[in-house]
Amino acid sequence: MTETFISWGMDPNWAWGVATIAGILLIALPLMLSVAMIIYADRKIWAAIALRRGPNVVGPFGLLQSFADGLKVFLQETIIPSSANRGLFLIAPIITFTVALMAWAVIPFNSGAILADINVGLLYILAISSLGVYGVILSGWSSNSKYPFFSAMRASAQMISYEVSIGFILIGVVLFADSFNMNEIVKAQIGHGLGVVNAFGFNLLLFPLAVMFLISSLAETARAPFDLTEAESELVAGYQTEYSSMSFALFWLGEYANVLLMCALNAILFWGGWLPPVDWAPLYAVPGIIWLFAKILFFFFVFSWVKATVPRYRYDQLMRLGWKVFLPISLFWVFLISGYLMLTRYS
C-alpha cells in the first residue's frame, strides 16, 4: 500500500506512516463489524441446534441484534465496585481488547495483503496470545470479589497449560514450512497433499496436530467445553462478574476477536489459509481473502457446534488433557516430524 501513496506524490516516510495507519484501520474496523455479526451467528447456530429461534426481532432475521446490544451497553452506567482497585479494574478490559486486535497484524489475507510481513510472525502470535492472560488475571484480582478471583486463577492456569502444547504443535508446522513467516507457511502448503490439495492437514503426520490444535484453541479461548472460567453454575459470570457497560462490552469484543483469530490460525496453519482448497488454476481466480473467510467461518461454525453439543469439562479433566495427553503427544510428534524430515528432506 505504501507504493500507492508514494505514487500519489507523498514523501516515502509519510507514505509508510499513512499506509500503516490505513492498514490498521482496514483490519480493525471490519474486524469489529465481523465480531458483531459473528456473535449473532453464534447465537443463531446455538439456537438452531437447541431447536429455538434465537435473536429474530431487531432488524430482518434479527441481524441487527448485536448492534442493539452494543448501543444498550454504550448507554449504560459504568459501575466500579467501591472496594475494587480502580486503575487496574479499568485497564483490564482494555488490555484484553487491545491484545485481541494486535495479533491480527501478522495474519495474511492474501499473498500480499499482510500488515506486518515479519520473519517471526508465528512467534509474534505466540507472544501476543500469551499477553491475553493479563486482562483476565487483572480483572479477577482488581474486582476484589471471590468469584472473579477464582475465575482468574482458573483462566490463567488453563491458558498457560495449553500454550505449552500449542507451542509444540506450531513447531511441527514450522518444521514442515521451514519458516516462521506466516505468508511462507501458507505458500509452503501449495500442493502439499499428493501434489493436489493445498493444506498441511492432509498430511498424515500433521493431521493429528491439526486436531490437537483445534481442541487447544478451544481451550486457549476458553470456549465451551473448556469455558470453566465462566462456569455460570459455580462462578456467576467468571472474571467479568463485576463489569458493566462498555468495560463489559470490551471483554466481549476481545473474546470474540480472539475466537476469530484462533479460527484464522487453524485455517492458515493447517488448511491452506488464503489458498483455494485444491491446486487447480481456475480456483485461483477467486480472491484469496474469500477462501480465507470461508475457512474462518467454517471453523467458527465448528466452535459454535461444539459449544452447543459438548458438555463442560471438569477442571481436573481439563488439566489432565492439557498436561498428560496433549503435551506428551505433541512433544513426541516434534521428534517424529524432525526424524521424518531428516530422512526425506535433509538427507
Partner: peptide, 9 residues
Amino acid sequence: MLLVIVYVG
C-alpha cells in the same frame, strides 16, 4: 519475541 514469550508470558 522470546523475551515477551518467556518473561512476560
